[in-house]
Amino acid sequence: MRDRLIAGPAILFLIEAAVRVFKIEPWMFPTPSAVALQWWTATPQLLPDLLATASAAIAGFLLSALFGAAVATALFLSPRADRLLTPFLTMTQNIPMIALAPLFAVWFGFGLLPKLLIILLFGFFPVAISALSGLKSTPAETSRTFIILGATRMFRLRHLDWPHALPAYFAGLRLAATYAIMGAIVAEWLGSEHGLGQALTMAAKSFQTPLLFAIILWIVLLANIAVAACRMLEKMLIKGGQSDAPVH
């Protein structure tokens, strides 16, 4: 931790020195101090964009979390649907979702709905796949024990399968949290009145590189806050020393 606290400012100092020594144009690569100043001064005017992106990302993330959990539960409860649909669900991991985003703009225009749908498109699949894999992770012996003890399917889903699935589900949620910010930005690139994605496009078109960096800094911060919030919730909900699940 101490090393990281030293390394961060040291890297920034080296970049600052290099930009100044080699006299790099600010529109090409601004100094970290210029970016910091821009970040500080531009934040009040970026606030509406920040709120637009964050609120859309949160709503889209919640939709992904809910739909992902619902679809995973349905597939888990229906082995036939699982056999039929899960291979397709897994295959979607290989599709660059960003390529599908313009379709939503064509179909639904440029309002909140296409924005939410794009975020859902980005976040739903990792959540559903991780949750399904987690639901299947209950040890067979534990399931057998509770069946013998007379536990119904719903009892096992509530007391065994979902608690066992939580670490994997949260691994999916952490991915979805980052993807939600990315989805919101992509949706705003495609066309929007507000949002950091739209501000990013404007700054790029007018070569306001320090502003561009300041917006990127906000996007990185938002993504980190989202992941940290997921981790906090995970720590609150997962008990008994269940370890972090790998991302599926």
Binding site: P139, E141, T142, R144, T145, F146, I148, L149, G150, H159, L160, P163, H164, L166, I238, K239, G240, G241, Q242
Partner: peptide, 14 residues
Amino acid sequence: TSYVPQDAGLLPHL
């Protein structure tokens, strides 16, 4: 029936 399996069959989150 009550049942006690080899691994005790306890739920780790409880």
